[in-house]
Simulated scan of single mutants.
Amino acid sequence: MIEAAMIWNEPNNKSHWDPELDPDWSRFARMAILAADAIAAENPAITRVLGGISPIDAGFISLMKGYGVLNQVDAVAVHGFPLDWNLWQMHEWPQKLNEIAQVTDLPIWVSEAGVSSFGAEEVQAWGLRRTAELLRGKAPRVQWYSLYDLPHAWGATTRHREVEGSSYYRHFYMGLLREDGTTKPAIREFLRHTPEMGLVQWFHFEDHRLGDAVAWMKRLGVTNLRTGLSWADSFRPNALDWFDRQMEALSDFDVTVTFCFTPEHRGLQPHHTSPPQAPEEFAEFCASMLRRYAPGVSSTAVPMRRVSAA
């Protein structure tokens, strides 16, 4: 079920990692290496992926290379949203991948690509079609973000706030399905690109949409999915019950599990973006989740390593 473990989410984005507490990303690098080693020790068949970066920045990948992080992972990943937040145009997708390829020979996954329907749902449908055209055959994984719109009552995990206008509100319109579960025009376009194109769907703790999401993904022909298991959520009451339900529901998919989010009481500062006080604790969380949901395979199994682009 679990084909890959992603170490953090957008570590070069201050919405997910605090650069004031780790200005040279050395704390992040140490944590990532510990996590990668723990994952490999638990199950060497799992592909280890450096958390998808946003913005797409070859300098950050070079920094991680200098720290030795790329020696401990099997792939790197990028996130791109050129019609919503990035300062580059849609047609530059191949160029952006090439910029990363210039600094590493590791496979480059597109673990989030998306277009919001904030301005117009027709724009989202066009953006999905053009994204698929530009990325076809360029990456071993291309995963669309996302299945559902974010419910307005939940709030977005981002540095953007309402005073920043559409930069914030676009977060709520990234889905193929509206908040109420009705379909947008882009869903018909998405159907043309599965199963080659995968999907990203983050599930909140005890997310009521889980069952419907699984049904929709099967209907759409999705075979590979990226989601997350939150280290912070693991301290909630009944956390393992929720994790068990989530992972059992997703058992028919090839899942990339993203491990991220610092528990407030274990951070240098009480925030999910904070470097942890003890990075070994994050590594142990990663290992414990694999022991539970992807226990080690026999030495005769074929490891999923060094996935090549088609």
Rank of each mutant, 00 (worst) to 15 (best):
M1K: 10
M1Y: 10
I2Q: 04
N9W: 12
N12T: 10
N13T: 10
S15F: 09
H16D: 13
E20M: 05
W25F: 07
W25Q: 11
S26M: 01
S26Q: 05
R30K: 15
A32N: 07
L34Q: 12
P44H: 12
I46Y: 14
T47M: 13
V49R: 09
G52C: 11
I53N: 13
D57I: 07
G66K: 12
G66S: 10
Y67S: 05
Q72S: 09
A75P: 00
V78S: 02
H79A: 10
G80W: 03
L83D: 15
D84N: 08
N86E: 14
N86I: 11
N86A: 14
N86P: 13
H91L: 13
E92A: 10
L97C: 10
I100H: 14
I100W: 15
D105C: 13
D105Y: 06
L106Y: 08
I108F: 07
W109R: 10
E112T: 03
A113G: 14
G114P: 06
V115N: 04
S117P: 12
G119H: 05
V123L: 03
A125S: 03
R129C: 00
R130H: 06
A132C: 03
L135A: 00
A139H: 01
P140C: 00
P140M: 03
V142K: 01
Y145A: 08
W154A: 11
H160E: 12
H160L: 02
E162K: 13
Y173P: 12
G175L: 10
L176V: 05
L177W: 15
E179P: 01
G181N: 10
A186S: 01
I187Q: 06
I187H: 04
R188V: 06
F190Q: 00
H193V: 02
M197T: 03
F205L: 02
E206F: 12
D207F: 06
H208N: 14
R209D: 15
D212P: 10
K218G: 07
L220W: 07
L220S: 05
L220M: 06
G221H: 01
G221I: 11
L225A: 03
L225N: 02
L225H: 00
R226D: 11
L229I: 00
W231M: 07
S234M: 04
R236L: 04
P237S: 00
A239D: 01
D244N: 06
M247G: 03
M247S: 01
M247T: 09
S251Q: 08
D254V: 08
T256E: 13
T258Y: 07
R266G: 09
P270G: 00
T273G: 13
A283L: 02
E284T: 09
E284H: 05
R292D: 01
Y293N: 02
V297A: 09
S299Y: 07
T300P: 10
A301E: 15
P303K: 03
R306S: 12
V307S: 11
A309N: 12
A309Y: 09
